[in-house]
Structures are given as C-alpha cells and as structure tokens.
Write a protein that binds this DNA or RNA. Structure first.
Length: 959
RNA sequence: AGGCACGUAGCUCAGUGGGAGAGCACUACCUUGACACGGUAGGGGUCCGCGGUUCAAUCCCGCGCGUGCCUACCA
C-alpha cells in the first residue's frame, strides 16, 4: 500500500496552488490580532498604484516581504502585513485622459470634475481588485481584513488632520514661487517628478542693441523667452562690461527697454554669469527660468509672464505672438530676429530638458502661487534619526544617498491642479480673500462673515497621503491599539527608485506626527530588468508579467495583447520584439518557482530576469517534489511517533548511522545559515543555502544512500536488524524533509505545504505548515566527525567515478578497485564505510594499508584522494599509459606548485613571526598533506613508467 | 558637473587579508526502480590596469580606464 500513484512525476502548480491559497485564506492564517500578547512584527506593503496590474517589480518586493512575514510568523511573532493601494493621482489622470482622448477626443475639462471623478473611481475598483487578486495568486500572506486605500475614509481623515496641523504649525504655507508646470496635464509637478535629460537643441546668439548705440551679444537655448526678458546680466568682475553697468538695451521685437545689470553670483563654484562662457552676458527672463528668477530677486527686476498655462504665448508679449505654442513662437521669433539683423548665429547644442515623468510633456518653469511644505525642519529630524541609527538602510551605502537628499532638501510643492486626489482643506472667501484651513468646511468667512466661501480647487500631491501611510493605515490620528502594536514597522521593503518620493516623506511625517521613525530598517531591492539589463517596458516588448510565469503564456497570447492594450508604439515593431524575446512563449512555472527565483537572484542593483532563469528554479521545485515523491513511496510502515521517541533517547541516537548523523548535521548547519541570512536580509544566501542542501546533499547523497536501506525486499522484511535500520532511515528522511519544508516554506509556500500535508509526521503538529515553528539550528546535532567521514567517502567515490569515466568503463559496470589508505584511523573509516563507496561509485573495493602494500600493477589507473588514500584501479589492456601519465603529471604539477608556495611561505621568517599561530599551523598541516600527496602521485607515475618505458619515450617526452 | 555603486569562467553573478566558487552555456558518457524540469564526469579565469600598505592582496588604500544608478537652474 504505497502512495506512489498519488504523486505525478512532474509537479503541477496549477493544480496545487489554488487549493492552498483557499485553505489559508479560509482559515484566516494571514490575520494578525493587534491585541495579541506576542511580540509584533509589522510590514506595510508599499501600496501599488491603481493604474494597472502587478508588475515584476511588485512581485520581487512583495516576495521578499512575504518571506520575512512568513518566517517571523513561524518564529512565533505577531506578524502583520498591511495591504493596500494608492490612488496615484497624476498617473491615473494621464491614463484616463489618454483613454478619453483616444476614444472620444475629449479632455477632462469637457467631462467636468464630477464625471471625471466617477470614471476615476470606476477605474480604481477594477484595477484595485485586479491587483489584490494577483497578490493572492502569488501567495502573499497579507492581512486582508485590514486592506486600505489612500482615498478611503481613514486615509482622508489623516490627510486633512496632517494638513491642518502642519498649516497651524507654519510648516504648510502658500507662496508664489518658481514651479514646474506640466502644460499637458495642466498641473504643477514637484522637482522629483521631472526627468531631466540632455536633448539635442540649439544655442542661438542674439545681438541686443544698446540704447545709446553699440550692442551686446547674449546666448540662449530658448529664444522665444526673449519676449519676457527684463534684463541682461553680466558678472561684476567681467571688465569687458564694466562700462555698460546700468545702461539699457533696446529689446528687439518688443519695443521695450531693459537694463544691463551687474550681478555677483557663484554657482557650482564658478562666477555666474561665467565670463568664460559665450559672450559672458546673459538674457534674463524671470518668469520662465528658475535661474533668471533668482537673479530678478537679487537685482530687483520686474517679472513678465509671457507663457500661459496651456504653454502658449500670452500678453504682454507683442500681439503677433500671442496664442502661439512655445515651439511655434520659437520659429517665429528666430525668423523675426534674423530678419531684423539681431541673429548672430546658431549652433547645435545639448540642452538639459525637463520632462514630466508621467505625461512626457516638456516642463515649463512658471512663477505661481502654490501650497508648500517647509521641508528643512522635517528633514532635520529624519536625518538625525538615521544618524542615531533609529532607522538603518540595507544595503548600508544607501544611507549616504538618503542623507545627501535630506541635507539638501528644498521645500515641497504639494498642490496639484488635478481632480483625482485629496482636495486641499482650505476655503477662500470671495469677498475679502481670507484663506481658512480647517478640518471641516467653515460656514462663513471668519474675517468678514461672508457665507460665500469656496474650497480650494487644488488637490494634494499623491505622495502626501503616501507619506502618512505607515500610520494612517493604523488609525492615526486616533490613538488606536493598532498603532500602539504595529508602529513603528520593523522594516520597509521597497525599490530604490522611490527613496526620496516616499521613504523620505514617511520618515519626515512619521517623526513629526508620532515622534518615532515609521520603520526600523529600510531594505532596498534590486531593480528588475530584462536579461540585457534594459528596463522592462510595455513599449519595448520585453516585459515579463509575473502572471505569465505563474500560468504560462504562448507566443500567440503575448502577441494578441498588443492589439488589446494598444501601447503607443508601432505594433509591428513591438510584435517583432516579442517574437524575439519570447520565441517559445512562457511555460507555466507556478508562483513558487517565481518567488524562489526572485529571492535567489536579488543580489545586485539590477536583477536581470529571463524565462530561462526562472526555469532553473522551476526545476528545483520539481527536484524537491520528486525527492518527496521518493520519500513517500518508501515510507510505508513508518511510525513517526515511534521514531520521535527513539531519537529522544541516547540509545536511539547512537543507533544512527554515519550518513544519518551527516545529513542531520548538514541540515542544522543550513538551518543556521538560512536564519542568519534572513536576519540580515541576505535573501539570496538563504535561498542558495536551501537550494544546495536539497539538491547537492539531500538528493545527490542522502537519498542515494538511503535507497539500499529503504527498498523493501523479502530479505529485509524477514531481518529484524535491517527492518530496524529501515525504520531509522525512513525516520531520518522524513524528519529531514519535514524540517526542510519548514525552512523553505517562506520562499515557496505552495509546494512545501502540499508535500508537508502528505508527509507522515507526529500527530501533534498543527494543521498547516505555515503555522508550524520555523526551524532553529540545534548545535547538538552538528557532528564534525560525521561530516569529515562523509567528505572522505564522497571524495573517494567521486575519484573512482572519475577513473571509470576516464577509461570508458561503463557506469553500469562494476569494477574492482584497491584503496590504499595510510594511517590506521583513516583506514578504519574507509573500511567501515566501504559499502557506501562501492554503491556510490559502482565498484568493488578492497582496502589495504598503504605502508604494507606491494607495488601496484603497472596496468592500473591510479589517483590520490587527499593525503591518505590512493586508488588503484586495474584495467588490464584498457589503460592508455600515455593519457594516464599525462593526467597524473598534471595533478603532480598542481601539487608541486602548491608545495612551493607553501614552502616559500613557511621559509619566510617574517611570516613565521608575524602571522597568527593558527594560520602558520594550518599552512604547515597543508604542506604535510601536499607532500604526502605528492609522494603518492610520484609513486603512481613511477609504476607506470617502469612498465612502459617505450610508451614514455614515444608519448611522454613533454613530461 | 557632483555623489554612490560596480568591474571575478563564454554569459549572469556569489565570495574571502592566508588553499579561486555557483547557475546557465559548452564537451563526453548514462533512458540505473524520485526526478531527462534527471544523473555522472570534464574543459575553461593575468579575480579591469598601474602603484601603495602588509609577512601575505582578487579582497584594504590611491590613481587610471570602463559600466550603471542617482542628484544638478549652466546661458
């Protein structure tokens, strides 16, 4: 009555995963009770934007978080993982408006605020649900009873409260300052939301005539802004222009006169304007250039706005240009300047151009009244907290990036002229202009009593609510039990790309409002790219969707999506890219394989992911599956309780064979490694340790050794000793497997749960692997002697296989070998475990003392293992003396080199005097071993030579 | 321009002040009663270059070259 038929040869995640997903959810295993007396461990999921679906970057971050949460939960912590999503104000705007434009050729202004909001909410419902379904699919053990949204009631309240308090404290204020205007989305965006890149542009040199005759030449990359010039600036130290200070120029095309001002500015350590650059004179357009604005403030210049909010030229520019787009105006102005003889020349020039991260529009610097957060006092606290180690960054070097930003921080513009988001809790009086910031709409103007007050039209930057997230989700501003239990979080796991956007703001807000850092550690993940290191992008056709890894997708399915999604690029080019990148489609590999792969590959700043790489871990999952399948096929008659009782007695433990002691020892070492690796966020090391233990030790060696004891033959059945032995091996195999499953569960929860449920185990264990106890390394089981003995057995077996293979002896054919072992200790070990070698290498072995043995036959292959063992494999006519000599000589060469290195070292008085004793001793030991090894190799070579002098002459000259 | 990181096998990447590693790829062999999503063995590296510190450097320091990321208002 075996269970063979119960398990298929290949693991099928699509059949297994849904069952356990349902099981865990139905049993409420993901829920954390805020009133639990156990030690809390909390993580807040970085809320995905409700703009689409879960991408591979989310899958990576969330996998690592789930590993931590499941690990800590199994360790007995009150593990809480807060789920939620972000309203992603401008991102939703861009998508909805793009869609609106494509389908109906309308803008949000055609639709109106109410209707637009209705559509945005509908979008949120669809997208938000899709994301949480995907998170469940990947097995993330988020506490779904707590699911939040940045625009839900709770978050709204926190946002209003935070805004009002900051305003009352003078940390939020309104000011007219230079901002980044996105003329496509028609909103201001923060500095962080602008991507500046060098683009090809031109540098025009313009000739401005002086009022009293003569001229001054200025250079510009934006000639159209000359319509708003209010000065020409030169550096005070620039002697060429000293005589022009205070003079005026006739500004071409405008009929205006503007002054030449001398300024004394230093930027980047250089005088500004830099006399060494161009003519040294600069035109000044305070309303449309941040740098010129600064000059205008220093020099007291007027400010002329000539570009409006739609990016068009406006009065007071000459009527001719009013209404033109910036690009058209540029052409017209240049043409007119040229016609008027004001154009000196134009040349190609790389210009840094800011574009809105979301809409891609060229940013127009503008002077506007906006709401700001005074950042310096908040940042100061955050920087201090990091310096005091209250929050640490992993990898540690990211601390510097963070601190650099924090110490150079600028005020944060938080108002946006968008609709989807938190409306600013400020009311304006239409009569007297009073601004009232309040938690609820005031009934009338508090200055003039006018009831006609209107709420500020603007909404808040989406990151304002995100900045409150670690505590708004826990009920702040109320003093909740949740907050007391789970704030601060233990760790924040996120990508380095939102360090400033989000991490910095949470630090500032958390410290300000709660007086405590929001999290003790910040772990920054890799950025996932394709295998070439290119960013994954739908427009590039290189996106690996985590769901496709789980479910699989044929090439045809991938191609069909181009039609459905209509990304804004040439569909044919895109299809070509997809065909190239996913020629074979994507096989269904399951969530476990993806999760394990992501954990194992998360090493450097970039994680280059490909289908092939995930396949390797799919194979690993399958390997584990088959090892378990083997175990289950051979566990009939096994009594877990009896075995457990047996292990708890000294006599029972003494009954363990060396391979049992070895695998149990290795397991405990690996448990310690995994635990230590997770403790310091080295997910890849933890995954690697499990991978190698399961594959290279459990499967390759222990299971192979166990087979001879487990196969149930009539002889075994009738032999009490062998039956007892079989029970022990069954017990060890089952125990090791069970512990391994617990160890691996945080990484790959589905397959481990599936196997664990099938495994015979003591009955007092809980009903699910995910609520068992995570293994703790038990030093009692670590057995250096067993590990050393096993190492020797492995080395001998491997070398025997090598000899067989070298001489073309079929692996299936058993062959006799002679093992000559120096020293009675090693000899006893080899003799004792001879059967293991014989089985592993398929040889029949005889052991002799190296000192006693007669010279080995010449027609034998020979090899040396370590310092003590020589393997002699008689091969009769099979042996190729020349090849054999070559091989041994090569080994000899290596040993000689090693010996000379060691001798040099040990012959160096300084080394002996200054190196630590244990290092010296170790080197001496090694020299001894290498010398003894050399002797054995030399002997082997000598016996070959003696018998085949002819062959030596013919083929061994080089030796 | 500044800051940070990186440069190790054909590729992707671990790693350590004292004997160079993994996976994939490659070569040869093996359909052995867990697994061909498998097994066995093998080849392959001036650890970017040049200096320095040290008894000892792939590892620490400096310079150079190359790559990536982030920050920045150069006309």
């Amino acid at each position: 009555m075996t269970t063979t038929s119960a398990l298929p040869k290949q693991y099928d995640p699509s059949e297994v995963e849904p069952r356990w997903r349902r099981f865990w959810l139905e049993n409420g295993f993901f829920h954390a009770d805020e009133a639990s007396p156990t030690v809390p461990y909390a993580i807040t999921l970085p809320p995905p934007n409700v703009t689409g679906s879960l991408h591979i970057g989310h899958a990576l971050g969330s996998t690592l978080q789930d590993i931590l949460i499941r690990w800590k939960r199994m360790q007995g912590f009150n593990a809480m993982w807060m789920p939620g999503s972000d309203h992603a104000s401008i991102a939703v705007h861009v998508l909805l408006e793009r869609d609106l434009k494509r389908r109906e050729h309308r803008t949000r202004f055609d639709l109106g605020r109410d209707e637009f909001m209705r559509q945005a909410w509908a979008w949120k419902e669809r997208s938000g649900n899709r994301i949480s379904e995907q998170e469940k699919l990947l097995g993330f053990s988020l506490d779904w009873t707590r699911e939040r949204f940045t625009m839900d009631e709770r978050s709204n309240r926190a946002v209003v409260e935070a805004f009002v308090r900051l305003y009352e404290e003078g940390l939020i204020f309104r000011a007219k300052r230079m901002i980044n205007w996105d003329p496509v989305s028609e909103t201001v965006v923060s500095d962080l939301e602008v991507d500046t890149a060098e683009e090809n542009g031109s540098l025009w040199e313009l000739r401005y005539p002086l009022a009293g005759g003569g001229e001054i030449v200025v250079a510009t990359t934006r000639p159209e802004t000359m319509l708003g010039d209010t000065a020409v600036a030169v550096h005070v130290s620039d002697a060429r222009y000293t005589h022009l200070h205070g003079k005026e120029v006739e500004l071409p095309l405008t009929g205006r006169r503007i002054p030449i001002v001398a300024v004394d500015l230093v930027r980047d350590g250089k005088p500004w304007p830099d006399p060494a650059f161009g003519s040294g004179a600069v035109k000044v357009t305070p309303a449309h250039d941040p740098s010129d604005y600064e000059v205008s403030q220093v020099a007291g210049l007027p400010i002329l706005q000539v570009i409006d909010l739609k990016g068009r030229i406006c009065a007071p520019a000459p009527a001719k240009y009013v209404g033109m787009s910036v690009a058209d105006a540029r052409k017209a102005v240049v043409a007119d300047l040229e016609a008027g003889g004001f154009l000196v020349g134009v040349k190609d020039h790389k210009v840094p151009r800011g574009r809105s991260q979301r809409s891609g529009a060229v940013i127009e610097p503008m002077l506007m009244q906006q709401w700001w957060v005074k950042a310096a006092p908040l940042a100061e606290k955050a920087a201090a907290a990091v310096e005091q180690g209250k929050t640490r960054f992993v990898p540690e070097h990211e601390t510097k990036t963070f601190m650099h930003w924090m110490t150079n921080i600028k005020d944060w513009c938080i108002s946006r002229q968008l609709w989807w988001g938190h409306r600013i809790p400020a009311w304006h009086c239409g009569t007297c202009g009073t601004i009232m910031v309040a938690r609820a709409a005031p009934g009338e103007c508090r200055t003039c009593g006018n009831p006609a007050i209107t709420q500020d039209e603007d909404i808040l930057d989406t990151w304002f609510s995100s900045g409150l997230w670690p505590f708004s989700t826990l009920g702040w501003p109320d003093k909740t039990r949740d907050l007391a239990t789970f704030y601060p979080n233990n760790v924040l796991v996120t990508g380095p790309d939102i360090l400033f956007f989000w991490v910095a703001r949470m630090m500032m807000m958390g410290l300000h409002f709660l007086g405590k850092v929001p999290f003790r550690a910040v772990y920054l993940t890799s950025i996932v790219t394709d295998e070439n290191g290119d960013k994954m992008s739908k427009t590039r056709g290189n996106v690996i969707d985590p769901l496709d890894i789980v479910h699989g997708a044929t090439l045809e399915q991938l191609l069909e999506r181009v039609e459905v999604e209509k990304p804004p690029v040439d569909p044919e080019t895109l299809r070509r890219a997809i065909r190239k990148n996913f020629a074979r489609g994507i096989p269904a590999m399951g969530a476990d394989a993806l999760r394990f792969a992501l954990a194992a590959l998360n090493t450097t700043q970039r994680l280059r992911l490909s289908v092939e790489r995930v396949e390797k871990y799919r194979n690993f999952i399958n390997k584990l599956w088959n090892a378990s399948r083997f175990a289950l096929m051979n566990l009939d008659g096994y009594d877990p309780e009896r075995f457990e009782a047996q292990l708890s007695t000294p006599a029972g433990r003494a009954a363990l064979g060396m391979p049992e002691r070895w695998i149990l020892s290795r397991l405990q070492v690996v448990v310690g490694e995994v635990d230590a690796a997770l403790e310091s966020f080295r997910f890849n090391d933890a995954a690697g340790a499990i991978f190698h233990f399961v594959w290279d030790e459990l499967c390759d060696w222990y299971i192979e050794i166990a087979k001879s004891h487990l196969y149930l033959t009539p002889e075994v059945e009738q032999d009490a000793t062998r039956n007892a032995r079989r029970h022990v091996v069954q017990g060890v195999l089952a125990t090791v497997l069970e512990t391994t499953l617990r160890l691996m569960h945080p990484f790959s929860p589905f397959v481990t749960e599936e196997i664990w449920q099938k495994l015979p185990k003591p009955s007092q264990l809980p009903g699910s692997l995910m609520i068992t106890v995570f293994p703790r390394s038990d030093a009692w089981w670590i057995d250096a002697a067993a590990e050393a003995e096993m190492r020797l057995v492995q080395d001998i077996a491997v070398t025997c296989r090598m000899l067989k293979q070298t001489y073309g002896v079929s692996p299936a054919q058993s062959i006799a070998v002679e093992l000559r072992v120096a020293g009675s200790g090693p000899r006893a070990t080899v003799e004792h475990h001879l059967a293991l070698v014989e089985r592993a290498a398929k040889v029949t072995a005889a052991v002799s003392g190296a000192e006693l043995a007669t010279a080995p036959p010449a027609d034998a292959a020979k090899a040396v293992v370590g310092a003590a063992v020589e393997i002699v494999m008689p091969l009769g006519g099979l042996i190729d003396v020349v090849a054999e000599r070559k091989r041994i000589a090569k080994d000899l060469g290596k040993v000689d080199k090693e010996i000379s290195t060691l001798e040099n070292k040990l012959g160096n008085a300084d080394f002996l005097a200054k190196a630590p004793e244990d290092v010296v001793a170790e080197q001496k030991l090694r020299l001894g071993e290498e010398q003894s090894r050399r002797q054995r190799l030399a002997d082997a070579l000598a016996t070959l030579s003696a018998s085949s002098a002819g062959a030596t002459e013919a083929g061994g000259g080089a030796l």
